[in-house]
Structures are given as C-alpha cells and as structure tokens.
Design a protein around this nucleic acid. Structure first.
Lengths: 196, 196, 196, 196
DNA sequence: TATGAATGAGTTTTCATTCAT
DNA sequence: GATGAATGAAAACTCATTCAT
C-alpha cells in the first residue's frame, strides 16, 4: 500500500505547507516536489494527478480529524456534552495547525466544482458524526422533538465553519478555542436544549 | 457613468450566466463577450480586467440584495420578525435565481484570495444588517443579554449560507424557501429567544 | 491640399511630442489624438494609417532640415566651409529640438523594416546634399582626387549621426553644437583635405 | 551552466535565422522554437523571456566578435595596422554571416529603449577596443596629438556601422570586405595620420 | 524506484482602424 | 468635416504531465 510509504506522507505534508504559504493557485506541483525533497516525477508514482494530492490530503487530514473527535466523544454521556467536545476539539485542532486551517478554510475552496464534490464526499464522515449526536439528543429528549436533523446539522457545521473561517481571515487575532463555550451555547439553544 | 450604460449590465448578466453554466475556471472573457453579444474588446471599455467583472458583478448583485432586504425589514417591529424576513428573503431571492445562487455559493469561492477579500468587503454591508438586528434583539430583551454579537452573526450567516450551499449542491431537490421557518426557529433559539 | 490645414500640422507636432515622451511602442494613435486635441477618427481624415503619420512626420521635418541647410550653405565658397556649415546646422537644429532629436535618433529606428526603407527614401535628399559637397570638394582639389564619394558620404553621415545619437543617449550632458568644429576637422581630414 | 548546453546555442542560432528572415516584430517565440526544433516551453528553460533571447544572442555574438578581433589585432605593431585589421575583420565577419548582419544592423535596432540600453552595454566592449587603438595611435604619434578620443571613436564606429548598414539595405550588391582599405584610409586621415 | 528535461495546450488584453451619427 | 464607441486579431508565457535514463 502506497499510503504507508514515507514519501506518501512527505508529499502530503509538503502540499499543506506549500498551499498554505503560497495559496492554491501558486501551489505548483514542482513547488510541492521541492518542499517534499523529491523529484517532480516522483509525485506521480504516489498520486494519479495534482487533484489526487488534494483529495488525499483532505482524506488523510479529515480522517484523523473524525477519529480524534470520535475518540474524545466516546466517553461523554449526553448529546450536549458530546457536542461541546466536538466544538472544542474542532476549534482546538485547527487553531493548533494554522497551515491546515488556511488550507481547509480558504485555499481548498478555490478548487473546481468537481474537486469540491469529492471533498464533500470526505466531509460526509464528519457530518454523519454530527447527525448521530443530534439524533441522540432528540432521542434523549435533550433537544426539541421536532428538530429537523439536516437543518440542525447545517446550523452546527455552518456556524463552526464560519467561526473558523472568520478567525483565519482576521489573522487569528483572538483565542479561537475560547469560543467553544459560547458557540456551543448558541448551538444547543438552537437545538431547543432542555437540561435533562 | 459607465454603470448606467446598457452594455455594462448586459456584460454583468452574461457573466452570471456563463460562470454558472461553465464554472469559474471555464468562464473565459471571450465566452462572456459572446454571451453578451459584444466584441471581446468591448468588455475592456467597461471593466478594467476580468477580475473587475467579477467584483462588479458581486457588488451589483449584493447591493440589490441588501437593499431589498432592508426594504422588507423596515416594516417589521421585532428583531425576530426582522430575522424571519431576512431569512425568507435570502432564501427566496437565491432560489429564484439559480444562476446567481450557483455563482455566489460555488463559483465565486474559487477565486483567488485577493478577489475574495474584495468580495468580503462587499459582504460587510450584509453582515452589518444582521448585526443591527441582533443588537436590536438584545436591547428589546428578545435575545439573551449575554449574546455575543459576532458569534451570533457567524451562526446566522453560517447557517443560512450552509443551507443554501447544500441546496445548490444537492441539485435543488427540495423547496428552499420552505426552510425559512425552521431555520429561523433554530437561529432565534440559538440567540436565546424569549417571546416579548 | 490636406497638408496645409491646421490639423495636419497639429497631429504631426503631437506625434513628435508623444513619441519622444512615451517611446515609439507606447505612442498609441489615441494618445497622439488626445495630445493633438482631436478625436481618434479625425487622424484618419488626414493620414492613411499610423505609419503614414510617421513617414509624414519625417518628411516634413527632414524637408525643413534640408531646406534650411541648403539656404545656409548657399553663401559659402569652399566645400570645406559648406561642410562645416552643414555639421554646425545639423548639430544645432537637433540640439535645439530635443523632442525631434529623440524621435529621429532613437524612436523612429524602432519602426519596422518597411517604414525604415521609406525613411531612407526621405533621407536621400539629405545624402544628395552631402554628395554634392564632396564632389565639389574633389573638383576644386580641396579633397583627395581618389576619394570614393559613397564611402565619404557614409563617413560624414555616419559620424554626425553617431555623434548626435551618443549625445541623446548620454542625456545631453555636454554641448553638442560645440562639437561641430572638431567633428568637421575629422571629416575633412578623412576626405584628404588640402587647403586651397 | 545552461549556456554550455546544446539547446542554448540551438535556440540562439534559431533566433538569428528567424529574426533575419521574418523581421524583429514577426519573430514570435513559437517560430523560434519551431526553427530550433524544440517546444515553445523549452525556450523558457533556457531564457527568462523573449527579450532575454535577444540580449543573450547579442552578448554571445558580440563577445565572439570582440574576441576574434582582439586576437587578430594582437600581432600588429602600429595603431594604423590595428585599425585596418579591425575594419577588415568587422566587414569580413558580417559579410560572411548575412543573417547576423541583418539582425545587428536592422532588426535589433527596432527593439525598445530598455533592450537597446542593454545592447549598448554589450557594445561597450567593442568601443573600448577602438578607444585603445586611438590612444595608442596618439601616444605613438601616428595620430594627431589634439585628437578627441570620443569623437574619433564615434567617427570610426559610425562610419563602419553606416557602411555595413548601407550594404545590408542595398541588398549586398557590392563586395563589402573590399571597402576595408578605402574606409581605413578615410579613418586614419580623419585621425590626422602621419606615417611613422 | 527515482529522476528532471522536455512538452505544448490554452487565455487575457491591447490597440489600429472603422463607421454610424 | 468630426466624433468616439465598437471591433477582433494576435502572441507571450505557465505548468501539469510524461518518459528515457
């Protein structure tokens, strides 16, 4: 499996750095190769084409993302606590890796429609995680019984995403993880939260 | 003033159509010119360069957008009613103009960072409108007194934006304006809404 | 005759200024029109095309040039005196009209081969004048009897031309007309001058 | 070093041919590439841009030019003999390479001011060579003691240059190297030559 | 496996010229 | 005669991808 070879990860990490520092449209394959200390041609031994680097990058990073959050959530009892942990971890992970934050919030969105559809495919794992929390919240009567799962998920993801994007675009002037509490409050309010 | 000449609007409208139908990266100036029924060179009598078409497009459309919503809101008494009108109008206007929705939700986000910063400049007018409603809600005790205006705004804009983007990406399978009520409910809940 | 109408000269003078100040490749027809205070289209009532402006410009200026020098020479007795007057006048006229000097020495040489051939056609009047002086000098035994007229003419024109070009390119740091004496000395030496 | 790779010279030689045969303004990069039997993009592996081809071309050719003449001159004793060798070699080298003669005498002068300044930089090596001969001639009492070096150099270069240009423009109807003797005679006369 | 030299398709913008008013 | 809005052809350069070594 190519994904376990060191150069595979080397190239992915190089891509994150190059895209974050140069922008999506200035992230030429040759720059990524140089940053990864491999020849241009070597890239094509590990990836089908340039787009494949980006999709793989997103898959790898988002896969780790979902795993970490799933792990953190596992120990929590209520949906509200799980949601808090999700918001906290989401904000923490991205605020700790500015390169990744820039890439996911700004640069990767400049890709074409086709790539974005594939990125969305990857995102589904994360959205499913959110859905599960919402459904659990409804079942446990924490959230309103008439809550529309899709809309609630769009609110949750849309709010967190917009919060991170604003933070990135405003040059990280403020403490992002500190917003976890207030954002969480907005979200459970939105979900019609009732203390159990 | 060039902006009042018929060709100016003609080119803007052509750009919306061409970008929506071909995607941002396949929207060559020559395609826009052909769609607008003018010569390639004519574009440059009205716009400084290609980017200028896109910025002008966004300014024109978003300007209209904000004006219409401001007009609709004017007659409403409470912040909650104003927010409902904003959500309704936002969803309605974009669902009625699919080309525009595709351009604003998908294609324009593929532009480079510089263009996106200018787009954000234009967006500020809309975000200010949201801020005013939130502040009014807090002052009138409709919303929680501890509500963070910036976060609330990010929730409101993030949720609506994500809702429209999902609708566009899911090929408009469902009735977007019909979501105004439920979305509104989520948002005022999030804001800690108390009936006056 | 169009050449006597005021706008004809107005456009020629404007062309000299615009070319001298902006360079040959930045001397667009629209700039010349603006400098001449006429509409772009008006240019084409007086000139066939852009090249025609440049040829006419050179013809007008060079025509005047030759006439003036012919006038000045008429009173002189010897070939050596005539040559001195030619050098003096050539250097004086161009040093007094820097715009014209820049255009003839630098900018007009950037035109294409076809235009340069036509410019040479115009130059012939001036070269004939030089030839007449050389022939007179040979006949009057001032110059060597074996002097090759064509080569002598190339030396005389080449030397003066190179002298003016150097002066223009060196930002006119020195007194050009003051070089007339020494340059004349070089030239008559070259021609095998013998005091009569 | 790129300059030693075969494609570097291949492209330079192709550029000389294409410019000579099509003229400066019709010498598109794609034409040069085709003539050099390389892809358009390959040009940009060896040259920064189109202008860089022209400057390199001139540097390479003029460098060789100066070297050859320096070599030929080395064995000569008097300034007059050195000057004769310089004129002979100058006329011979250009008459033997018509493509190069067309490029240096006609086409390269159509370039913009910036390029011409760089060309002049390269020319300085040649002009210095001329200066050295003049100074030697003055010191050895071959030339007049009051001879102005700059003017003498302008006469020498201007005369040779004009001679070659006339030959090129007159479609090489006559034997250019045969003019070396007479031209040399004009020039040493001009310098106030006295047999030692 | 790894390399990196070579490829060549693809697009914005300028500006001389025209012609309806 | 005079205008100036409209035209549309034309070219340098980039960069993802390949393939001989």
């Amino acid at each position: 499996m190519k994904k376990n070879k060191p150069k595979y990860r080397q190239i992915i990490e190089a891509a994150v750095v190059v895209i974050a520092e140069n922008g999506y449209h200035q992230a030429q394959v040759s720059k990524i190769a140089k940053q990864a200390c491999v020849a241009d041609g070597t890239i094509y031994l590990y990836f089908k084409n340039k787009e494949d680097i980006l999709i793989s990058l997103f898959q790898e990073k988002m896969g780790t993302f979902v795993e970490i959050i799933e792990g953190k959530i596992a120990g929590k009892e209520t949906a509200a606590e799980k949601l808090l942990m999700l918001v906290e971890t989401h904000l923490k992970l991205l605020s700790e890796d500015l390169h990744l934050a820039i890439v996911t919030q700004l640069e990767l969105r400049q890709s074409n429609k086709e790539l974005r559809l594939k990125v969305n495919e990857v995102l589904k794992g994360y959205l499913n995680l959110i859905d599960k929390i919402i459904i659990e919240g409804i079942e446990k009567k924490e959230f309103g019984s008439s809550l529309d799962v899709r809309l609630a998920r769009q609110m949750i993801f849309g709010t967190i995403d917009e919060t991170v994007t604003s933070w990135v675009m405003n040059e990280q002037k403020y403490d992002l993880p500190a917003l976890a509490g207030p954002v969480h409050q907005l979200l459970i309010n939105g979900c019609g939260y009732q203390k159990a």
